[in-house]
Amino acid sequence: MTTNNVFKIEDFNLWYGSTQALYQVGMEIPRNEITAVIGPSGCGKSTLLKTLNRMIETVPSVRTSGTIEYNNQDIFSKKQLVEELRTHVGMVFQKPNPFPKSIYENVVYGPKIHGIKKKKILDDIVEKSLRGAAIWDEVKDRLSQNAYGLSGGQQQRICIARCLAVEPDVILMDEPTSALDPISTLKIEELIKELKKDYTIIIVTHNMQQAARISDKTAFMLNGELVEFSDTNTLFSNPSDKRTEDYISGRFG
């Protein structure tokens, strides 16, 4: 059953109330690669990302048409419990959003809500996740401290660790470095490249250099349409669409 594609999006449209935000989007997202989605503000890239784990449904008045399949399963089917989908498809947000709890409690939040209670198992998950998010060495001696005391970049890595603790298959990242300084950004970028070995990563970014630096494939969106989707190298060096070329050469956006 396993194909090389994690997500298969076909003829997908989305409306906020009467405003259409996505038009006939179709793409296939490859497993264990980093897919970047770029485009100007309001082009629908975040909307598309949030649709993949149905977080978009927290916005009232959203309507959709078309299909999105996750591992060949329609994510909108009645059988699909949205809570289950979200354990497979995790999310890291734009602004670091740790809970006002200790670092330890932040990381075990996911496992706990999914019913893991044994202290030993939770301890192991914490270490593994924090190591996975490349922050174990920085926080291992202060796991009981409130996560709010950390810097923005550290908070974001805690959020990534918290996401890893649920053992997702895919990690959606919504401009994960836009609120961070360049050094923290670099650390997160290195982390993302590292995570690629075990996870499929889809990252929305404002920063075209970032997309070029870390992603394998890049999608360019404009006004709710998917303009071009190809290998990152191809898209940046030899775009096939005039609008892509205009955007990456900085003529607008």
Binding site: E83, R86, F93, N97, V166
Partner: peptide, 22 residues
């Protein structure tokens, strides 16, 4: 903050779990 609810819901928590824990 709405972001805290999103973080919780985004990990597959139900609404009630989010209310009770966050």
């Amino acid at each position: 903050p709405q972001e805290l609810r999103e973080a919780s819901i985004g990990m597959g928590a139900t609404r009630w779990q989010t209310i009770w824990r966050i």
